[in-house]
Nucleic acid binder design. Sequence first.
DNA 1: ACAAAATTTTAGACTAATCTAAAAATATAT
DNA 2: ATATATTTTTAGATTAGTCTAAAATTTTGT
Lengths: 225, 225
Amino acid sequence: MDNQLLSFTEENYLKIIYLLTERHNGNEVSTNQLAEHTQTKAASVSDMLRKLAEKNYINYRKYQGVTLTEAGEQIALGVIRKHRLWEVFLVEKLGFGWDEIHDIAEQLEHIDSKELTKRLDDFLENPKFDPHGDPIPDAKGKMPSVSYQKLSEIALNQSVVMMGVSVHSPAFLQHLDKQQINLGCGLKVLEISDFDKSYSILLDGKTTIFVSNEVAKNLLVSIDE
Amino acid sequence: MDNQLLSFTEENYLKIIYLLTERHNGNEVSTNQLAEHTQTKAASVSDMLRKLAEKNYINYRKYQGVTLTEAGEQIALGVIRKHRLWEVFLVEKLGFGWDEIHDIAEQLEHIDSKELTKRLDDFLENPKFDPHGDPIPDAKGKMPSVSYQKLSEIALNQSVVMMGVSVHSPAFLQHLDKQQINLGCGLKVLEISDFDKSYSILLDGKTTIFVSNEVAKNLLVSIDE
DNA sequence: ACAAAATTTTAGACTAATCTAAAAATATAT
DNA sequence: ATATATTTTTAGATTAGTCTAAAATTTTGT
Ligand SMILES: [Mn+2]
Ligand SMILES: [Mn+2]
Ligand SMILES: [Mn+2]
Ligand SMILES: [Mn+2]
């Protein structure tokens, strides 16, 4: 529409490189990691990396992994912005659950129209976070910095607010739904079991629930002031 | 998402075959017509027709043109349904003009999720027509039959209602906007000029406007009862 | 430090969708 | 009816993205 510089596939590679780099605190992403996340083989990834490097979207030294160039990062942030805006649309306007939206957003994130993105953003009242608590990059391609902590790193009896999840699988999200753990909930760790490191948590100052260590590691929270 | 049986490209061919067949009252569509509408060359169309015939989406006799099979028609109607629903969304929810939406809908029509289409339909309150007056096929793949007439075929002084357009170019739609000719307007042909066959029209029983013969041929109306 | 293991790249092949040029079929026009 | 023009199909290439198998490079373990 506006100017389809990149293919669907190239956009996906750049987006995944961005997200993996972020997850590794800025360290290079390896060929095998990309193969896993693109559902392809390492050989295919090597080919694509050569192409993206040629177009100056990535910094690539053979065998050494990749990072995004400024140009590549802007593309990636544009795709992530659309992905997260569409997720807000699907939940807020169409009533989908947060466990049902990712695969649809994977398609919608490639719709190419600056004007559409702008109007969608306004229609949604310029949300700053998606339904999983992930920040939405602004129209200028700037990702808001957020600093959440894992619930598993929070001191006992410290009141915190549930802000996000570090795993987006439907199974995990449905598990949280069942326990009524939602974004914005108040949480306080009362006790960690010596036996299996599972957590007793006071939810919204009212009910006590029990979650596994695995769950506690994937809940992102911020200190409640 | 649900089951991506067909490529983006195959879906486009089936949609275009449907729309051209409809326009020709059920007559076969030729290779050259398809080449024109798919923005490709006749040789490419021949290849694709062989493939679509093999998959039983079209009836194809070499050199004789094509029609859709029942299976092909269902695919085409599904794509057209999505196209028109998204156009309603873009106009009714995001405030786009009817001249700005087609190219965006060309992309959105390929988003694959039954559940999304269903929820979008409900969100839009199950519209029966798109912003150009074209009927929206239902979820079962049935196209509502509508019988509009060209304004150019209507008797003098017969009151009619503006129901649709047979050309969707932004230039034509913007031209109608400028003259305040919108869907639902009341129209009555007062006179046809002997000189250039242009029309004097009473708009909404209030103002008199003048439109070219070309415009009158592309306005679809129904008798006002 | 060096052999073994793991990772990454290259080589060569395949599919989908496209193209140009040439051949085949159909339509048209005297 | 037959030559000419038009349309359509086929033949042979090309590009993007993928694959498997083999070669090259880096990492690991003793
Ligand atoms: Mn997502
Ligand atoms: Mn998300
Ligand atoms: Mn349209
Ligand atoms: Mn339309």
